[in-house]
């Protein structure tokens, strides 16, 4: 029997992986930097919490609304990406993260500094989801998200994304509307974050603005960069590694942000493609050993 400690870590990792997959659509596929992904994770969590606690909906009826609201707000906040690029977009998204967090913290409707508690557990076939069943429910959602990403990479739209990522001006002159595809990326990515946030809220049963602050965004981005930007499995690998490492090295927990930042710097300097990306060390070693066999 797995210990409940391991299940807790596993569940959190799977939930975060969903959000990181969403970030991957924005940063990896469409090449739009976002340092405010936790804001959308939070929007999903708060929307679901309010709909279930205050409006009395069930998780399942609330879910489509949560995803739609996540996508809609993503669409609105994706608008800056049309005007600003690269470093400016990074700063803008950081700003969005701080604003969203502040709204949660200071507006009484969102529970203010106390957050929202008493969020019900998810009911499925009359079973209250927790422990191992909830872990598998999250895993199920992660599989759907990965499937969507995989299916997406095989569509023409993904080519449009890559074209915009690589040469925006040329892509635009080819008939690919940067506005449309950037917004599509933001909508896809933020709705995945909202789904992840919703699962998080119903797992923790208590949420608070601090759960969705800027360092959480940095964590998401670190996971993505570590695993491999723009790959299908990179977000999952990165999240698993960064989720497990601090547990193995317990003293590291207090220095998590320092560790993340260092890791980001080292990865970007030496392995910009991440563990699963192009020219990656891991991939090279794997392919070499397999060739030898």
């Amino acid at each position: 029997m797995l210990s409940s400690y391991a299940i807790t870590i596993g569940t959190i990792i799977v939930i975060q992986a969903i959000a990181v997959c969403g970030l991957n659509v924005i940063v990896g596929f469409a090449g739009q930097i976002s340092l405010g992904h936790a804001a959308f994770f939070g929007i999903g969590a708060y929307t679901s919490a309010i709909l279930t606690v205050k409006a009395g909906l069930s998780f399942w009826t609330a879910l489509p609304i949560v995803i739609a609201i996540g996508g809609l707000i993503g669409l609105m906040l994706g608008l800056p990406s049309i005007r600003v690029r690269e470093d400016f977009l990074a700063i803008t998204t950081i700003g969005i993260n701080f604003i969203v967090e502040a709204l949660f913290r200071y507006i009484p409707f969102f529970g203010g500094a106390l957050g929202i508690g008493g969020i019900p557990r998810i009911m499925l076939f009359d079973i209250r989801m927790k422990g191992i069943p909830f872990f598998f429910l999250c895993l199920f959602f992660l599989c759907i998200v990965i499937l969507i990403c995989w299916w997406f990479t095989r569509s023409w739209a993904s080519l449009a994304f890559y074209a915009i990522r690589e040469e925006e001006t040329a892509a635009s002159a080819m008939g690919i509307s940067p506005v449309r595809f950037k917004l599509l990326a933001f909508v896809m990515g933020t709705s995945m974050a909202a789904l992840s946030g919703s699962l998080y809220a119903h797992y923790m049963q208590f949420i608070n603005a601090g759960d969705f602050s800027f360092p959480v965004s940095v964590g998401f981005l670190s996971m993505l960069v570590l695993g491999g930007i723009g790959t299908i499995w990179g977000p999952v690998i990165g999240t698993v590694i960064l989720g497990v490492l601090p547990e193995l090295f317990r003293p590291l927990v207090d220095y998590r942000i320092l560790f993340y930042t260092l890791l980001l710097l080292v990865m970007i300097r030496f392995q910009p493609g991440g563990l699963l990306g192009e020219k990656s060390l891991v991939k090279n070693i794997l392919s070499r050993t397999f060739k030898r066999c």
């Binding site: 023409w156 080519l159 449009a160 890559y162 074209a163 690589e166 040469e167 040329a170 892509a171 080819m174 690919i176 192009e278």
Partner: peptide, 13 residues
């Protein structure tokens, strides 16, 4: 051209 796309994908765009 889009450097990290194949020749075929470039044409597809």
């Amino acid at each position: 051209v889009f450097p990290r796309l194949t020749v075929y994908e470039n044409l597809l765009t």
